[in-house]
């Protein structure tokens, strides 16, 4: 096991873009917003990612996360 803590490659979740079928129980410090369809979801994700210069990942259930390292 390397000295991972000193390597600082962790990222913080800035925002999550969901759809109406997703249930968010707790978001912590992340900003959560709901899009009306997939097209809007992608658009919003890109807009937030560009604004905060963050990276994007998509979970297998369709939620987009915007991360900043």
């Amino acid at each position: 096991m390397g000295n991972e803590s000193s390597q600082r490659q962790t990222a913080a979740i800035i925002a999550a873009v969901t759809l109406s079928n997703h249930r968010i129980l707790s978001a912590g410090e992340a900003f959560v917003l709901e899009a009306k369809d997939e097209e809007e979801q992608q658009k919003l994700t890109l807009e937030i990612a560009k604004t905060v210069k963050g990276d994007v990942t998509q979970l297998s259930n369709g939620i987009y996360l915007i991360l900043k390292s």
Partner: peptide
């Protein structure tokens, strides 16, 4: 593949969530 990037079978990142990336 989707948001996952790999090099010769080794996972590198899944931060390619947007089509641009």
């Amino acid at each position: 593949e989707g948001c996952e990037v790999s090099v010769e079978g080794t996972f590198v990142t899944n931060l390619a969530g947007t089509q641009n990336a």
